[in-house]
């Protein structure tokens, strides 16, 4: 058996598999996050054979670019079962305990999507696990600039990646930390944003972090105008972009606590904007004021 340790958002998880599996190749996106060892908060055991659970209760399903996912409750509610498929074909499955400390991941190593499937399932479970540590898995495109991290949020297709590209083209020192899924942790009232092995379609897996300088939700408009958001407004700007299994009230409560702590620790704004250089200068000027 081989064990690989990875550290994301200052939290270690371990992936264990048969030594014949080329784990480094399978989880290429995770390589920049490898650590020699560590006290793992989550354990992922990989298997290459499926198992069927006759007693499973359907909870919900979702369709994303990862395919079709179905979530079940098994073991009388002691575990969650996630099944990923594409056009009726099973891609993988993952059994998790309620605390998301121990996961069994099953996949087909011969599939060209094997790495993507395993990585996606690890991502889903880890996003739940970090909640207990003041962590939040966020959907945003994130810039590093002047020693701070700035997250840009918005519905898919609103132009987050365009906006961060405009930062890189127009704001000296601006770099991309992650294009889709950074992590934030709030510890002792201080918020830090971290890169992760998950960055959507842009392979930007940077093992870096910075104090969170601000969060901006983008809205398409025929002009550039930014305004600060506070309290309930700030919560409403940020909450939709946070990952959690919402039907699990324990997890949902931890998410809300963490989000409230995060907005307390940083600046939140709403930017109505065009996809132009002035939009980037507008948000940059506001955030670094």
């Amino acid at each position: 058996m081989i064990e690989h340790f990875y550290k994301v958002a200052d939290l270690v998880f371990v992936v264990r598999a048969d030594e014949r599996l080329d784990l480094a190749a399978l989880l290429r996106n995770c390589e920049p996050f490898r650590v020699a060892s560590g006290e793992a908060v989550a354990v992922f055991d990989l298997y290459t054979s499926p198992i069927s659970y006759p007693e499973k209760t359907f909870l919900e399903s979702d369709d994303s670019d990862m395919g079709h996912s179905e979530l079940f409750s098994v073991g009388g509610g002691s575990h969650y079962l996630l099944e990923l498929s594409e056009e009726g074909k099973k891609l993988g499955m993952m059994l998790c305990n309620r605390a998301f400390t121990n996961m069994e991941v099953r996949f087909n190593p011969a599939s060209p999507y094997a790495g993507l499937v395993v990585s996606s399932m690890i991502r889903i479970a880890f996003a739940q696990r970090v909640l207990a540590f003041g962590g939040i898995s966020m959907h945003s495109s994130t810039i590093l600039c002047g020693g701070r991290g700035y997250m840009f949020m918005g519905k898919s297709g609103t132009g987050k990646s365009t906006h961060t590209r405009l930062w890189m083209e127009n704001i000296p020192g601006a770099e991309l930390l992650n294009d889709d899924n950074p992590y934030v942790r709030v510890v002792d009232g201080r918020a830090t944003v971290y890169g992760s092995p998950w960055s959507g379609k842009t392979p930007c897996y940077r093992n870096l972090s910075a104090p969170l300088g601000g969060i901006v939700r983008l809205y398409q408009a025929p002009y550039n105008k930014i305004r600060r958001a506070e309290d309930v407004d700030a919560l409403n700007q940020v909450l939709p972009g946070c990952s959690v299994l919402r039907r699990d009230s324990a997890l949902h409560e931890m998410l809300v606590d963490n989000v409230l702590a995060m907005i307390e620790a940083t600046t939140v704004a709403a930017l109505e904007c065009l996809p132009d250089a002035d939009a980037a200068r507008t948000s940059h000027e506001f955030l670094t004021r």
Binding site: E60, V232, L235, P240, R246, H252
Partner: peptide
């Protein structure tokens, strides 16, 4: 939160909303 009291509830309809 600020001057208001809030309750955050996971949406019953949309899987990813509160």
């Amino acid at each position: 939160l600020g001057a208001k009291y809030i309750i955050v509830q996971a949406s019953a309809d949309a899987v990813d909303m509160s």
